[in-house]
Every structure is written in C-alpha cells, then in structure tokens.
Design a protein around this nucleic acid. Sequence first.
DNA 1: TTGATATTTCGATAATACTCGACATATGGA
DNA 2: TCCATATGTCGAGTATTATCGAAATATCAA
Lengths: 117, 117
Amino acid sequence: MDTSTAVDTLSALAQPSRLQIFRLLVKHSPAGLAAGKIADDLGVRHNTLSTHVAILTRAGLLRSERNGRSIIYSVNPQGIKSLLAYLIEDCCNGQPELCTPMASEPKQQGRSKRIAD
Amino acid sequence: MDTSTAVDTLSALAQPSRLQIFRLLVKHSPAGLAAGKIADDLGVRHNTLSTHVAILTRAGLLRSERNGRSIIYSVNPQGIKSLLAYLIEDCCNGQPELCTPMASEPKQQGRSKRIAD
DNA sequence: TTGATATTTCGATAATACTCGACATATGGA
DNA sequence: TCCATATGTCGAGTATTATCGAAATATCAA
C-alpha cells in the first residue's frame, strides 16, 4: 500500500459516522446490512449514509451486493487487513517491539470483550 | 480507546504531510528529529510543520523534548499501539480470522493498484 | 403499465481543514 | 545586554468536506 492509498483509507475511517458504520458492519460480518438499516440504526439520513458508504467502498473497506431492492454492505476484510499491515510495517520499521498492540493496552486482558460507547 | 479518540488519531494520520512526518520519525525512532530538520527533509514550511506536529502530538502519536534551541519530536509508541489495538479489536470482533494482517500480505499483493506518490 | 420501496445523485450551504506571511516567544552565545 | 537561531501562534485566504432537500434511478408487485 502506498502513502496516497493509506491516506485515503485513513480518511475514510477518520469521520465519526463512517467509523460507526464500519464498526456496525464488523459486528454484522460477514452477512452485512442493507443501506437503509444502517442509516436507521445510526440515525443518519439515507442520502448522507449513501455518500459515506460510497467513500468507505471506494477506500476498499466495504463491498456491496444488491439484494432485491436493497443493497447489502459488508466489510471487505482485505481492506482493513491492508491498512493494518501498512501501519504495522510503518511503525515497526526497525523496532518490532515498538508496536505489537496484541500485548499492550493493559486495561483489559480479556481481549475481545469491549462495551460500545 | 473510545470512538472519538479513534477519530482524532485517524484524522491525525489521514493527511499526506502528517503521515510522512510520522513515517520519517518511525525511521528515526527512538532518537527523534528536530522540528526544523523534519521540515527541511519533507519540504514543508516551518510554521506549517509546527501545526502538523502539534496535531500529531495532541493525538498521542508523537512526543517532544527540548534540546537547546531545538525541539526533538519522536514517536510515542503507546499512541500507535493504542490505535492498532483499537482497530484490531474493532475489526476482529467475533471473526478473529477476518483481520490478522501479521500472517497475510506477505510482501505485496495485488489489491487496488494505484499510481505511486 | 402504475405505485410503493430502496438507494443514489445533484446542487447548494455550512463547517472544517490546510497553508501562508507576519509576528511572537524561547534559547544560546558574543 | 543584543543578536541570531529555532519554534510556535495568530489571522486571513483558499480548499476540502459534511449535510441537507429535491430529484433521479432501480427493483418489485399488483
């Protein structure tokens, strides 16, 4: 992943509604959710949501599939994988111990349990 | 890390100059670089760079230390660690195999080719 | 076909972000 | 002290982004 793509991907997630959309779809992965259902769940107008999911899709983070009148959006695993790989390679360049997040974040050792905000 | 903090951290990195600054400082971790040296290396005006590193610092990604007349900026490992932990927990919620970038993306694989920067 | 539902596109407005020059602050040395 | 160096802050101009209502497109069913 090059720098320009990384900026696009980071920008896609760097917006409250879009990060919420992504989180919601992670919870519903791999089935996905219809655009209207996402909008209703998050309290976003349908046309605004449409532009947000378009940005996330263009960044490679989501994929879509039509199902009758609905369009189902779901997480594209490769997208977030690529971003994480880029960040990890970026920040561990030479210092692997600098960022191994698995072992850090001492808050809660359970790893995976996380209450929504 | 809550959603709002995550957006701030992602926003800090979602800008070409700031991502370059971060990458440069990763290469020079843990020693760090003086603000003026960063600006010269990247071809950014000194006052513009100052605002960029302030944003990165406020996001917890960098830390600074005065050395004579210079101010040395360096990577704050905890910052990127926290972001990675958030993303990994976020995108693996329920599907751990969805995003384990360590094992995937061995070197480079064709996903959305794009013109280099 | 018509009508209802689901989503997207368009155009405008408002808010935010980026960059710059000018000026201010802080440090070290003569 | 005064001066040069290094960095930060301020305010303005420009560009980008977010959001909305309205209209357009797509699908299904009667």
